[in-house]
Computed example of a mutant assay.
Amino acid sequence: MLDDIWVDDSVFALRPDFAVLLMTARGLRNGPTDDRSRGWLEQASALEVQTGKIDAWKDAYRAFGAKPQRTRPSVDALTRRMPLPEINRAVDAYNSVSVKHALPIGGEDLDHYVGAARLVRASGEEESEEALGRPEPGEVIWRDDAGVTCRRWNWRQGVRTRLTETTANALFLLERLEPMSLEELKEAGEELADLLSEMSPEVQITSRLLSNGK
């Protein structure tokens, strides 16, 4: 499944330093926030925000015409919600890693996907949920065969594919720009895998790094 996910060349032309670590987690035992996942959130909330990495995402948004003060990159919005909100165990896990590394992370329910995920520049004609609105031409979006799954790179996710307490099979998208190194991206992925394994000991995790020219 991971081999079918792709990033359009037009996105790499916009930001040649972009890379995404793709992770699937099959056999999750998700559920409501508990004391363990609450502890992850509390630890992340106590950390100092790494503004330099977030500024890189603001620049990326401006490059395709978005105003990051109005539609903020996901990690920027998340760091402004301290203490971190309790959602569910899987979301708590990736939100805590996201804040720790100033790294946008998306979590998607694989069982609600239609075809493969891909990151593209929008035509403006894509199917999109009413709450998301229709993307603007040239906007960077994640999508599948059924339509938009996340607008403005990582600004807002659709309802159809979001992680819920009953999600059993998930896709995680860890999105990197410089100055984050690929080594730190890998470390963040390993930390997320450890948290998911802690909450779901039988989970099966696979990963793939997708970067410019690869």
Rank of each mutant, 00 (worst) to 15 (best):
D3T: 08
D3S: 14
W6I: 01
W6H: 13
V7Y: 07
V7Q: 05
V11A: 01
V11D: 04
R15Y: 00
P16V: 10
D17E: 14
M23I: 11
T24I: 09
R26H: 07
L28I: 11
R29N: 11
G31K: 08
T33N: 13
D35G: 14
R36M: 10
E42F: 01
E42V: 06
Q43P: 02
V49A: 09
Q50Y: 08
K53P: 01
D55W: 01
A56L: 10
W57Q: 10
A60N: 07
R70G: 00
P73I: 02
S74A: 05
L84P: 08
P85F: 12
N88M: 06
N88C: 13
R89S: 02
R89P: 03
Y94W: 10
V97G: 01
S98M: 12
S98W: 03
P104Q: 04
D109Q: 09
D111C: 09
L119G: 05
L119A: 03
E126H: 03
E127P: 02
S128H: 07
S128C: 15
A131G: 10
A131V: 15
P135F: 02
G138Q: 06
G138H: 07
V140K: 06
I141H: 03
R143A: 14
D145K: 07
V148H: 01
C150I: 08
R152Y: 09
R152H: 09
R152L: 14
W155D: 09
W155Q: 12
Q157R: 12
R160N: 05
E165I: 13
T166D: 13
T167M: 03
F172M: 02
F172V: 01
E175V: 00
R176C: 06
L177F: 07
P179Q: 12
E183V: 14
G189Y: 04
E190A: 07
E191V: 06
E191W: 03
L192N: 04
A193M: 03
D194I: 00
P201Q: 02
P201Y: 13
I205W: 08
I205D: 05
L209S: 09
N212D: 11
